[in-house]
């Protein structure tokens, strides 16, 4: 009968079997963790929230420590959507996220003022670095400030790769260019990539160019680039966390924020990266706005 069956019918049967195999596997795997969960944590257990955040928190690995700790304590599941700050805010405005964790203070304040969010907190800060090729063709290492460093890059026409994606890091970079009195857009040495931090650093590495990066992402990547400017006050990078007002999971969202700005969350943030990089990547500084 199999031999007589038409080719199409055979194909259909094979596809069905393959499909069943895969769905079967998927189910058994996803069922295991919840079955093994021993304790019922709180009345919020089993709820699910979406955290819209920037790629830097995800790429640095911080959320891989913070989120599981919160999930274990409360039983609330957190889905992390790591995108650029611009997209994260749009997602939150359109009600597709419950909590926002980003670093673009002006946009955060606007988000709250326009009534999209509340319970805004300072969470932590890390620092930005200017990185570049070891030979440092523009001599940024000898400059006194970040502003002077960028001025030297512009003067020598050394290549600079910009995020160019409206992210918090990109906005920071534009602010320092402005302070330096330089409009880099359209310059031949200024490459606007429109991509995430990791991709931008890879590009700078390949092209032997300079870039502005957050410290966490830079340390987490294996690159030939070196730090050419750090420590300047204008390079500090504060993160904020905000509850989205249109969220249907108000209590779970508040629980998450309270955890992050609370003792345990702040301790995890302060410890993170010590083991791997010798010093913590983020400095906790929780403060209600």
């Amino acid at each position: 009968m199999w031999k007589k069956a038409k080719l199409g019918a055979k194909l259909l049967v094979i596809l069905c079997i393959v499909g069943l195999l895969f769905t079967g596997c998927g189910k058994t795997e996803s069922d295991t963790p919840s079955n093994n969960d021993p304790v019922e944590q709180s009345e919020l257990a089993g709820k699910k929230i979406v955290l819209a955040t920037t790629t830097s928190t995800q790429d640095s690995g911080l959320l891989d420590v913070l989120v599981p700790a919160f999930e274990e304590e409360t039983g609330i599941e957190v889905d992390v959507v790591a995108v650029g700050t611009g997209q994260a805010i749009t997602l939150a405005k359109e009600g597709n996220a419950d909590v926002l964790l980003v670093h673009a203070r002006a946009d955060e304040d606007k988000f709250v003022e326009e009534g999209y969010g509340s319970e805004a907190w300072d969470v932590m800060y890390n620092q930005f670095l200017i990185v570049g090729p070891a030979e440092d063709p523009a001599g940024v290492k000898d400059s006194a400030s970040a502003v002077e460093g960028l001025q030297k890059i512009a003067e020598t026409g050394a290549k600079f790769v910009s995020r160019g994606d409206d992210s918090g890091t990109h906005k920071k970079e534009l602010k320092i260019w402005k302070e330096a009195g330089i409009d880099p857009s359209g310059q031949e040495w200024y490459l606007s990539a429109g991509q995430g931090m990791g991709d931008t650093l890879k590009m700078a590495d390949e092209l032997r160019a300079y870039a502005l990066t957050d410290e966490a992402t830079f340390l987490a990547m294996d690159l030939e680039l070196e730090v050419v400017s750090k420590g300047d006050p204008s390079l500090l990078n504060p993160y904020g966390i905000i509850k989205v007002n249109s969220s249907k999971e108000q209590e779970a969202a508040s629980a998450f924020i309270n955890f992050i700005v609370g003792e345990e969350g702040q301790k995890i943030i302060g410890e993170f990266g010590k083991e791997k990089f010798g010093s913590p990547l983020f400095t906790p500084d929780a403060k209600k706005r």
Partner: peptide, 26 residues
Amino acid sequence: MLVGGNIEHSTRVMTTAIMMETRKGN
């Protein structure tokens, strides 16, 4: 996106521009 890099005035094409504006939230 990977091998072109979406560089303005150099390697940006329609699809990478769409991707970039999406990431920006536009």
